[in-house]
Each structure stands twice: as C-alpha cells, then as structure tokens.
Design a protein around this nucleic acid. Structure first.
Lengths: 353, 353
DNA sequence: TTGAAAGCGATACCAG
DNA sequence: CTGGTATCGCTTTCAA
C-alpha cells in the first residue's frame, strides 16, 4: 500500500532515521536522548554518531505531545512598552531562562485582545503555566483557567483563588500623599486611571490611600482636584491606554488654570507624573517650588527625570511570580493553596518634591 | 488488553470524546472544527452541541504536529527593556496579532544566552518563523537557520542572505554630526558601543558617519574625543550591556575634565545621550549653551527629556519585518530572494542642540 | 538491555 | 457527505 505523505515534511531527519542508521530501535534512540534508561555504551556511541552525522534535532512538538508539557509559560499584560511592565517581564525572563522555560507573550490593550488571549489559554496544552501582569482577573476567568488546569500566578493584581505577588497600593498612596502633606501641601491633586469594567486596577487603591491620608490629616478632599483617565483599555481608538502621559499633561494643565490651583500632584504612575511635570513647565511653573509632583512605580524614566516617586520592586515582582509558578510546576499535582507574596514600597525622594 | 495510561492526562476531553458523544466519526468532528470540508447541517449541530457540553478545546500541540506549523514566531533581541527594542517589539506584535500569530521572545544579553537561543531555534518545529532584532548574525548562524528551514527576517541588522529592514546608519551618523557642525561645533565627541566579537553593531556605521562628516568639513578627528563602551554583551557581570547610560555618563564626565573639552557630543543611542546630559548637569554645564548633545533612535524617553536626536522608525521597523515574514510564510515554498527594506532617518531638533 | 507497539490528539487522504 | 485509518515524531510500558 502506497503511503501518501500528506504534508511535505519540513525539517530534517526524525528519530527513526537515526535508529535505522545506528542499527537500533527508536526506543533505544529515545533512551539515549532522554537519558532516563540505561543503554549499552557501544550502542549509545553508535546512536550519538548517527545523530551527529545526520544533524538530527528532536521535534519538541512531538516530545511535548507525548510528555504532556511544553516548557513554555505565557505572560499576559497590557502595555508591554510601559517601563514598569517591561521591567517585570525582565524579572520573569531572567528567572525562567535558567530553568529552560521559554516565554510567550500576549499583549492585551483592548477588550477584544483580552478575549482573544483568554480563548488562547483555553486552548489547552500550549502553555505549562501562565503569569498575568496588571490585568484584572474575573471569577469567570479563574474558572476557565481551572478547567484548563493551567497553573497561574498573578503579578500586580490579586484574586483570592490564585497565587499573587502584590504591593499594598493603598499604603503606597497614603505614603505618597503624606509625603506631600508633610511638606505643607493641602491642595493636592490626584491623577490616575478610572476603574475599568474589567475590574480593579492599581489606581483605585492608590486613590483610596490618597483619600485616607487626606482624611487623617483633616484635609478636605476637593473633587475638583481629582482626575482619572477614562478607560481606554477598552477602546484602543482612544489611544495607547492608561498611564497616558499626554492625557495626564492636559488634565493637569486644566487643573492649573483654576482659580485655586493645586500646589502638588500625586500621580498614580510615573508616566502620568511626567505629564504633570510637562504641564507645569508649559505654564512656566517651577518644580517643586510652584508645583510639587510625586509619581508611582519608580521606572527608569523616573530616575532620569529626577522624579520623586513611590518605588515598588518591579523586576523582583516578576522574578517572584516566576518563582512561585516554577514551584507549582515542579510540585506536580500537589496543588498548594494560593501563595501570596507582598512586596514593600518606599518613597524615593528626588527633585520634584 | 488493559491500556495503561502512562501520563495522567491533563486537560479535558479529546476529539474522540466529542465524536462518541455526537455519534459521528472523529473525521467529521475534525471537519466541523477546521471548516475545510462540508458537513451535513444536522451532524454539524450535534457536533457543536457535544463540543459545547463537553467544554472541549482542541489541542494545538496535536494540531501543530499534524499540520507541520505552530502559529508562533520567535523574536530574538538583546535588551528587551531598551526603549527602542520594545518599540520594535510592539510593531511586531501589532502586526502579528491580526494574523493570529503568537510571539515567543528570547532575550539575549550574553554569549551564553545567545548560544542557548540558537540551539533552541535549531530545535526545529517550535517556531514557524523568526525575527532577529539588533543582533549580529554570522554565516554559521545563517547556515543553521537554513538547515532548519526557518524563515528569518532581520531588523536593525543585515546579512546578505536574509531579508532585512534597516536604516542607513552611516547616513544617520553623518546627519547628526553635520547638525552639530552646522551649529559651529568642531570639538565633537562620539559616544557609542565598541564593535563586538559577535559582529557588527549599529554603533559602527554611526561612527563611520561621524568620521565622514568630520572629514568632509575639514575637521580633524581627535581620538581623545571618542569613547566606545567595552562590549558587555559578552560579559553580563559587567552590567546591563550596551547603550548604558551610567557608563556613558562617566565617560563624558571624564571627557569634560580635559583641558580642551568637547563642546558637543554625538551619542550613538538616546540612553547614552542622556548619560551625556547628566554628566553636563553634574558639572554645572548648560545645555545646549556649554554642551550640545544629540542622540540616536528617538525613543520615548528622548521626547520626554527634549533630546535632539536622529529619529528612526522604531515601531514601523518591527511591523515591516513582521510583514515580510508573514509574506514569506504565506507564499509557501516560493522562496523569494532576500527582501531589503530601507527606512528613513531624520533629525528631530529639540532642546539639546 | 533491548525491541515492539501503544499511546499523545489532531488532520486529511482514500473509499464508499 | 461520511467513516476508517495512516501519519506527524517522540516517550514509555510490556515482554523478552
């Protein structure tokens, strides 16, 4: 019977070619490949020689299919270009590399992309594990993940059922606000992102911290001093999403035109803080003299522009997250409960306050 | 005979479960899945229903193995955290998403990582294609890639045998230098990276352009004004590699201490230019009055600090590269020759010159 | 130690 | 249209 080759095979020799050339069975070749079972030294040599001569490379696809694991972990995040996100990603990759894990990234900047991404995760078996960065996760999402039995850890977001590495954002917001308060400011603006239909974002608790610090200091909250970016995560046409420097700049410019403008601004992200800095400059205001500004995250750019900010361990968050995932992946089956890793925040005082 | 299940199957139902439940053959299920062949409306309904009820998700691994393609493309690059690289990556992802291609990233910051990465590409069939960003490619690398029949396109590097999207770096270097020259500067420092054993980097041609412009203007080149970072790509212990802001700052600081210091500096990357800016500031020099600075790339940070620079289309380079790859992937087999896409550079004058 | 063969989970060819 | 089945390339159990 003629064996029709459906698809013209791409790529080189397969394991059976090696076996034939070495005069052994594929099983034996597989054994020397995996090194799991003993093989007679002589045969092993023949196999190695055949592999060498043929330039044979095993198919990781076939291997994955057979083994039931792929050696790749997925990372979903909005805005990989934002400094904070790419720093976290670096932490993840640095930790994944020595363990021989590869990383697949999924950019999510719209509800549509988000849906696509989760559909992909639903397509079981492409990924051994998943790390979600800065993206709210719903109960439904968690249910899907569980159904696919896809080990998942969260970074910069939280969900009671999943492992997560986070910081105390309300404390961070409080810290930032207190910092400004302690310098005598009372008209402190808040610049951040609005809550999104997708759920909680870090702007929310930071805003809470702001409110709390104000209340504790007996300073009334002036709604006119609060601006939160409309959710552009859901509408890509609006722009490149939250943390938008340009939008923040315009918002602060508007605030500055008021009869009783703010004397300080607390921005929920460094990029937005920089927007505030630019608004001040446009108006010819001196920083921190006329306007004090504090940001959040401590991205590299913050250091460059000498922005006072609330530092959170960015690379470390990624590395920690990957560490937890690695542990879950290693402890096969033994589903430990959700691990929660809190990271500390701290004020980094530079030249804008 | 008892069928021993070797590995406890992770994940849910497989195609045969669906077939059984729907009372049809797996072939039919596959047909409704792929939509390639006609299926009676009634059966199709049953199948869809079974899929729904079972919560069935096809295994992309098995599908890939059968199809001979994975739907994922790899991106190798040094320093994903550098603004220019992440901008290019964004261009790639934006272009890949609508075509349903996923992206796997390989960070390469050391010779060791570089080796690992290429070994992985050698492991045929994980990737449908590859994009190499800013990483010199040797003839041996190309040979390996060809053997694996892995379609590859280069971004920000070139090799005669591969498709590539690049800019004219010597022209860019010339432009930058002329810009400084035209403002009356003659003592112009060059700050860049050294040539690496791995091959050509963009600093080299930019330096050539610098030399050429100087020569054309009849200005002698003072070797004391040239500083090129030692290759840290090969030695991770040295730091986070080229384009290092801190190293550039220190180098410029040293230059500034000379008896006849430079009055301008052309840095081969924005980050290094920012290092120069910081050195000037440390010394209390005004920019551009006492020291003019021009960078290269036009990353977002350049805009933020109002750095004059040579712009190159970053996102576009990634998008173009992905476009070429997509074309090569689509035109199955028809191996068109290496496509070369040149992109234009332009001076963006801001406040540092 | 070793070989034969049963999976892993789909796709698509060949008959009917 | 539909079902049976060879195949993609590798790993591991079973028996020898």
């Amino acid at each position: 019977m003629e064996k029709a080759v459906r698809t013209p095979r791409r790529g080189g020799p397969r394991i059976s070619d090696v076996a034939a050339r070495a005069g052994v069975s594929v099983a034996t070749v597989s054994r020397v490949l995996t090194g799991n079972s003993p093989v007679a030294a002589a045969k092993r040599e023949q196999v190695l020689k055949a592999i060498e001569e043929l330039g044979y490379r095993p198919s990781s696809l076939a291997r994955s299919l057979s083994l039931g694991k792929t050696g790749v972990i997925g990372v979903v995040a909005p805005f990989f270009t934002y400094g904070a996100t790419s720093a976290r990603l670096r932490g993840i990759m640095d930790r994944a590399a020595p363990e021989q894990y590869d990383v697949m990234i999924f950019n999510v900047e719209s509800a549509h992309q988000r849906h696509d991404a989760f559909v992909k995760f639903a397509t079981r078996d492409r990924l051994d594990g998943l790390i979600v960065i800065s993206l709210p996760v719903s109960d439904a999402d968690v249910a899907t993940l569980r159904r696919q039995e896809l080990p998942t850890v969260l970074v910069d977001v939280d969900h009671r059922e999943l492992s997560a590495v986070t910081i105390d954002n309300v404390a961070g917001g409080e810290l930032a606000t207190q910092h400004l308060l302690s310098r005598g400011h009372t008209r402190i603006a808040f610049i951040g992102d609005a809550p999104t239909p997708l759920g909680y974002t870090s702007s929310d608790p930071r805003y809470q911290g702001y409110q709390r610090a104000l209340a504790a200091a007996g300073v009334g909250l002036d709604p006119a001093l609060v601006w939160r970016a409309p959710d552009s995560t859901l509408d890509p046409s609006v722009g490149r999403g939250p943390h938008s420097r340009v939008e923040a700049r315009e918002a602060v410019a508007r605030l500055l035109e008021a009869t009783t403008p703010p004397t300080a601004v607390f921005a929920a992200s460094d990029m937005q803080a920089i927007g505030a800095l630019q608004a001040a400059e446009q108006r010819g205001l001196r920083v921190p003299g006329d306007l004090a500004v504090i940001g959040f995250d401590d991205t590299e750019t913050a250091e460059i522009v000498a922005l006072t900010t609330v530092r959170q361990p960015l690379e470390e968050s990624g590395a920690e997250g990957m560490g937890i995932l690695l542990a879950e992946l290693a402890g096969d089956g033994a589903i430990a409960g959700a691990v929660k890793v809190p990271l500390a925040v701290a004020i980094i005082e530079r030249r804008t306050t």
